[in-house]
Amino acid sequence: MEQKNSLPFTIVVALLFVFLLAPVLLVFPMSFSGDNFMSFPPSSWSTKWYAALPGNTVLIGALWTSLGLAVVVTTLSLLIAIPAAYAIARIEFFGRETLFALFTAPLLLPSIVLGLAILIVFVGIGLISTFPGLVLAHLVVTLPYALRVLATALSTLPHQVEEAASSLGATPLTVFRRVTLPLMTPGIVAAAALAFLVSFDEVVISLFVVGPRITTLPVELYRYVDTRADPLVAAASVFLILGTVAVVLIVERTMGLNKAVGKG
């Protein structure tokens, strides 16, 4: 196999990375702007937007809501998706493929359509502008991701290892607890991280469900730039970027560790 990449290939990849990352990286200098409106390059430098951040009670409140929401949504996603993925990957039953297609269908629908549909249903049953309402709405988007990742993790796990366990006297529940679950840990970590990030970043569907009583950080940031032009959002974005990188790094470390321990 060819090991060294050619120079033109390296240049194309470098350009792609610049194209993808430049807007994100621009946020960093902008957050240290001394101006009262967003411009690049800033005419002066200061940390005043970082100082102003903790004082913005709306954004801070929305941050806590988003964090709590992401934690609850992630937990529920795993609790639902792990048994569902197991059933779909391991148990033969009528309509199995249809069910899997149905479960993962929201991935293919435009978020705006989903948001509108959720709004129509939720208005009738009083879930708009409530925490449970947001949880349910986010689950619609996070479940397909979690299910897909977990089903893939299960399908790469050799079935014979489970059969060996049962031939050694393990009941189906014990097989799942002692063999299946530990072996699908990398998949579970990946599914959890994905569900967490999807929920934490979700804007479109949240826009339909939030209200005066409850709001999320992405929605508030969106509203903020709609009415104001100062670089406060840049400072907030820096924290979001660092937070996301932290989650990805944690996953990488855990997955890496798990691969070291788990793969035969």
């Binding site: 014979q160 006297g169 009941t171 097989v175 063999v179 530990p182 788990g262 793969k263």
Partner: peptide, 20 residues
């Protein structure tokens, strides 16, 4: 009897050891 109650020792072609 289900597999776990049959008291049979089984060796697979792939060995199927518990990797963890």
């Amino acid at each position: 009897l289900p597999a776990h109650a049959r008291d049979m020792g089984l060796v697979f072609q792939s060995y199927a050891l518990f990797p963890h």
